[in-house]
């Protein structure tokens, strides 16, 4: 059981590091939001659950923290992305399509 927890924690820690690498390398805000929230969500989830597996009396509390992170991280990423779009941040150079001008709220700005 202990070694299973070590493996799960190791996978989580690796994904946390990959989130940092993606945040550093991607070209514009939206891609950075993708890397910085997706990889760290799974990474934090796996790390915290792994600690709960290594120490079975802590499992309930760690499950609560992990579920809380899983519920709130998409909301904060969504609000940051919308703030970036409404404050006029440009897309990166290689972008294919931008259909947001079809929206009535966005077209007047």
């Amino acid at each position: 059981m202990y070694y299973l927890g070590v493996v799960v924690t190791g996978v989580g820690v690796l994904f946390l590091c990959l989130g940092g690498i993606g945040l550093f390398r991607f070209p514009d805000v939206y891609n950075r939001v993708q890397a910085g929230t997706k990889c760290t969500t799974l990474g934090a989830f796996a790390t915290i659950i792994g600690v709960g597996i290594m120490e079975p009396t802590w499992f309930w509390k760690t499950l609560i923290i992990a579920l809380f992170i899983l519920a709130t991280n998409p909301i904060s990423s969504h609000s940051l992305g919308r703030a970036a779009y409404k404050s006029g941040t440009e897309l990166a150079e290689g972008s294919v399509v931008d259909m947001a001008s079809e929206f009535e709220e966005y077209s007047e700005e």
Binding site: L16, G19, T40, A44, A83
Partner: peptide, 20 residues
């Protein structure tokens, strides 16, 4: 917004670190 995203990522990483 870039900096805010970076601080958000650091926050999530640090929550995992605190549990560890």
């Amino acid at each position: 917004p870039d900096r805010a995203v970076a601080v958000d990522t650091m926050t999530t990483i640090i929550v995992a670190t605190l549990v560890l």
